[in-house]
Amino acid sequence: MSDYMGKFKKPHILMSAILIIIAVFCLVLILREGRSRGRTVRIISGGTLLRTYDMSVITDDIYITVVPASGSGDAYILEGIQHPDSSYNVIRISPEGVCVTDSDCPAGLCIHRGSISSPGIPIACLPNRLMITIDDTEESSTDAWTY
């Protein structure tokens, strides 16, 4: 391979250029991230869409507890703040945005993420396979994001 690649006299320039282009492209994507307010909140556990909320009709704080799928059954939602024996994430949906307030996961990144209100990067909890996304679309039965 090195004989073949010897034709390129300065591979490091090409490879640095590739890295710089990718980095600048990523930076542009990050800076252009939407600042608008989203409409539909989706609570997804293990790829299954459990529930959607329409942000425009939410007036008070709503608390739900999501229990991920385990050996004993599928994922489900408990109303209110609960602390089941299994894994869980407590989610607060308020007119200002959505956040995870409590979780049994070790690092607690989903809690540190804080509140989200605009379409863009979702809240993820990898240990509990939870995703919370916000998007601009109307609530609908077909969902292109989940599988």
Partner: peptide, 16 residues
């Protein structure tokens, strides 16, 4: 593992 394509919205952050 997550079963959701929404994870790809993290791509620019993770790549950078």
């Amino acid at each position: 593992i997550m079963g959701s394509a929404a994870v790809f919205s993290y791509t620019p952050y993770l790549v950078l």
